[in-house]
Design a protein around this nucleic acid. Sequence first.
DNA 1: CATATCATGTAAGAGGTTACATGATTAC
DNA 2: GTAATCATGTAACCTCTTACATGATATG
Lengths: 182, 182
Amino acid sequence: MSSHDLNATAASLLGFLLEGPKTGWDLAEAVEQSVGYFWNVTRSQVYRELKTLAAAGLVSEKRAGVRDKVPFAITAAGRAAFTAWMAGPHAPDILRLPVVLTVFFGAHVAPEVLRNQLAEATQAHRARLEAYEALQPEVSEPYQRAALDLGVAYEKTLITWLEGLPWSAAPAPRRRKRSAPR
Amino acid sequence: MSSHDLNATAASLLGFLLEGPKTGWDLAEAVEQSVGYFWNVTRSQVYRELKTLAAAGLVSEKRAGVRDKVPFAITAAGRAAFTAWMAGPHAPDILRLPVVLTVFFGAHVAPEVLRNQLAEATQAHRARLEAYEALQPEVSEPYQRAALDLGVAYEKTLITWLEGLPWSAAPAPRRRKRSAPR
DNA sequence: CATATCATGTAAGAGGTTACATGATTAC
DNA sequence: GTAATCATGTAACCTCTTACATGATATG
């Protein structure tokens, strides 16, 4: 068991294979559409990990697919490795939030630069929030639903923070001396 | 300017050098102790990026330090590159939260495994929250303070979520027949 | 003078991204 | 039959982590 320690990416793929055999393509889709907001995995990684997992005997290739589909199924050893990973100690959380950096260094840039970044970030996170909220009623499995709920809470926190920042709003227009504006 | 596009890590180091010359060691400390919770940079990276930045003329080595200290100062070109990075489009947020994965796949593990993971995560995030809150009164610079505030808000969101999960608590002890509890 | 900590760095490997190549199937 | 998209994969490169090596200075 300890002979092949899983990396977290591989472990997550095994997790998806518990539902049944999947192709690399399907796995990439499944990851992106479910845990994508807190667990980033690219297609390239998927294919590479599948190869490694197959070599370690944790998944088995089922030559059965139509087209060029190559479905993989999790093996008994794969299940064991997944279980071990779930119980084991985890790597620390990783966050990389460029917007927050932009704010942190905000004193060193022109106000409109910061304002633009904040506006873009707000928009992006609003879009995500909407996507997650639209998903919520569809996800009934309680564990997956809980994960999604964190996504929603996270986005709300970020949006609230972004919109509460005093640098988000455009400054009140400078009033010219006794002029009829326009 | 566009001849050397900064990666985000390098950009953040330049940001810290705006305050004044720093050694690699100092930079690593500064990053970890200020933006560490949303911007992870290892010492190895720091030294490597400094070398790269020096080669590109964005920082200059000041052979002046006591001991073996090698302080670097940002150059005019470095300032320009930093400003460009701040204004430019940013890479998407990256989140890697193993705990959330554990919850997502919670159906596939024993309840106490999940409970343990949740308990550990809660403890870790409580500790972080306390650290940030202790820091808050010390940080008066408004932009840095805003960034720290997000850290606090983020930790609170996570903790609230963790503690609200029904799998966090130990199951109610099985009630023995007609017993006087305690 | 021994130990802790400061400070620099390298080496090797794992993990992650981007761009490209290739062909099958489906929809128009 | 042409275009979109499904599906697989490779190559090159960059980024990140871990472990190690080295020596100076400060603390007891």
